[in-house]
Amino acid sequence: MSASDPWTPRPLVIAERTRETADTFTLRFEPGGDGIRFAPGQFNMIYAFGVGEAAISISGDPTRPGTLVHTIRDVGTVTHAIARLEVGAAVGIRGPYGSAWPVARARGGDVLIVAGGLGLAPLRPVIYDVLARRADFARATLLYGARSPTELLYTRELEAWRSSGIEVDVVVDHAGADWLGPVGAVPSLIHDVVLDPSRTIAMVCGPEVMMRFSVRALAARGVAADRVHVSLERNMKCAVGLCGHCQYRETFVCKDGPVVSADRIATIFDRREI
């Protein structure tokens, strides 16, 4: 779809809508035909007709291209318009765009997934991919942080993943006495997680500050920067590296990213003026 006509959105009808948290919901589409093939980490531009477009990561199963899934937070004009759509309504979709998580490179070793808040959505396809080929990976670990227990995404799946051979540690920033899990910041989980730095590929997605601290925590555990990948978020417009809205110094996040290795951005990740 994107290679032949990167500019024209394809209308797709919402087949299912699931509320995840107070402000976050998941839409499922059935594109038909061969479906929409994507690699974990890629995104689509979703067009709310008459309102505008927003870049949204694909959060579904890459082994099931017949089903397209996006988890969206109602946070801006476009996503607010999408949030008001019911099952049967249409949006325009173009994509998929961008780089992918290095799942293939992680095969034969350990994979460490570090997600914060909505950052779990772009990483969920990695988890599906790992589960589909579980024997290809040694240790598989998910460290997931959220603001509070009520803001955790995919809570049923977290349990299913745990019982399917993925170690899942969940931490929240704030909780009442009824929360039995840990309370704190997700980078603190990195301090305690069992990992072999020489055979670990880490994939980190969440708010940029959380990613910066996570990258530092991984470095402190001895994981080389080229084995750590993050997903950058910038304001994307064209999604094909032409308009420059998403430029991050020499990197066009839409085309060269959103997934980049930490060594590639090591000199600019902590710089406030970029």
Binding site: V75, G117, A146, R147, E151, D173, G184, A185, H191, F213
Partner: peptide, 18 residues
């Protein structure tokens, strides 16, 4: 120091709407 670092991160309310 490390505990303070963790508290700073919590205080940022990172996962709130930006």
């Amino acid at each position: 120091y490390h505990r303070l670092e963790r508290v700073r991160l919590q205080r940022l309310d990172l996962y709130g709407v930006q």
